[in-house]
Amino acid sequence: MRRVVIITGASDGIGAEMALQLAAKRGSELALVLAARNAQQLDTVAGQCQALGAHTLAAPTDVSVREECQRLIDAAVARFGRIDALVNNAGRSAHALFEQVEDLGWYEDLMRVNLWGSVWCTQAALPHLKAARGSIVAVSSLAGLVGVPGRTAYSATKFAMTGFFEALRAELKGAGVSVTIAYPGVVATQIRYRGYNARGEVAGASGLKEENAMPVEECARLIIGGMERREREVVMTTKGKLGRLLKLLAPGLVEKMALAAVKDEVRPR
């Protein structure tokens, strides 16, 4: 039976790489429903996956709009008849010191993409996932485990994702639906460059140190492995695992570690 996987934020970065790796692994046994706002890039990724043997549906979607989330799920079921996995990967970044933010409107916009897009897609897909005893993946961030200076908005959205999907995992335990939360650190993608700055504009630069960024191929491989093994969590770096433990034992040290990840020119003074 063909496995049907929906990936949001699939036009580039982690989402596109996950789609390509899954297509290479499963070929014609896989149907990929790829969602993102950029229809042209989405078609390119869909074509690459088709060349690897996968069946695809490119579904231009803005997950910050509830009706579009519902249309995405409806289109997937209409085309392929089932849903086996939903990867909530769509997201936007932001870097700004809170005291420099005058208009909090873009905080709300960020929450609609990073949290509500995942909630709306999951609600629409849930009956189909339960029928398939399928899998849900939530791509959070290490900033959803440890607050990072300059990332108040982003951390808030990712902490919210973590709380929602942890609670949902417990609710779905008896239904046979797995919930995997992935916590990438700094990954070599453009997400931080396209995120918001203090004025709510496209940042054009990253506020984090990028020298040791994880290759996107490795990140995607780790998430796919966690999904297929139906793991509860995928914390991707030793520093991330250590930071989570030290948060309970030595919170001040964790704050120093978080500051160390931020470029000097954008640190709080």
Rank of each mutant, 00 (worst) to 15 (best):
Glu29Ala: 11
Asp103His: 00
His95Ile: 04
Val101Ile: 06
Val113Ile: 07
Glu231Phe: 12
Gln21Asn: 04
Ala54Arg: 05
Gly13Lys: 13
Gly243Asp: 06
Gly174Trp: 11
Val177Ile: 11
Ala143Pro: 10
Ser11Asp: 02
Ala250Trp: 07
Asn212Trp: 11
Glu166Asp: 14
Ile7Glu: 03
Phe164Gln: 07
Met161Cys: 14
Leu253Gln: 14
Gly105Tyr: 02
Arg267Asn: 05
Ala19Leu: 03
Ala54Gln: 09
Trp120His: 09
Val179Phe: 12
Leu32Tyr: 01
Pro60Ala: 02
Glu99Asp: 11
Asn212Lys: 15
Gly150Ser: 02
Asp12Trp: 11
Lys209Gln: 10
Leu253Val: 13
Arg269Thr: 09
Thr157Ser: 13
Leu172Pro: 11
Ala39Val: 12
Gln50Phe: 08
Gly144Leu: 01
Lys247Val: 03
Met111Asp: 04
Gly207Thr: 06
Gly163Pro: 01
Val33Lys: 15
Phe159Tyr: 02
Glu228Asp: 10
Gln190Ala: 15
Val266Asp: 06
Thr237Arg: 12
Lys130Val: 13
Asp62Lys: 10
Ala19Cys: 05
Val113Thr: 05
Arg37Glu: 10
Gly195Ala: 01
Val101Gly: 04
Ala16Pro: 01
Glu217Pro: 15
Pro268Glu: 12
Ala58Asp: 06
Arg169Phe: 03
Met18Trp: 05
Ala23Lys: 07
Gly207Ala: 09
Lys241Asp: 08
Arg221Lys: 04
Ser64Trp: 00
Asn38Tyr: 06
Thr8Pro: 02
Ile136Leu: 13
Ser206Tyr: 00
Arg232Ser: 15
Ala76Ile: 12
Arg199Pro: 01
Asn38Thr: 05
Glu29Ser: 11
Glu171Lys: 13
Asn197Met: 06
Glu171Ser: 05
Ala124Thr: 08
Ala258Pro: 09
Arg151Ile: 02
Ala160Gln: 03
Gly144Val: 02
Ala260Val: 05
Val202Gly: 10
Glu29Asp: 15
Gly147His: 08
Glu231Val: 08
Arg230Ile: 04
Arg112Ile: 03
Lys158Ser: 10
Thr44Val: 15
Glu171Cys: 03
Thr189Phe: 00
Gly47Val: 00
Val101Arg: 03
Lys247Gly: 11
Glu17Phe: 01
Arg26Tyr: 15
Gly15Arg: 10
Ser118Gln: 12
Gly53Glu: 01
Val5Leu: 08
Ala23Ile: 02
Gly147Met: 09
Arg92Leu: 10
Ala35Asn: 03
Val113Met: 00
His95Val: 00
Thr61Ile: 06
Leu253Ser: 11
Val179Thr: 12
Asn197Gly: 07
Gly200Met: 04
Ala31Asn: 09
Ala198Ser: 14
Arg199His: 08
Leu253Ala: 07
Leu259Gly: 07
Val262Phe: 01
Asp74Leu: 10
Arg199Cys: 06
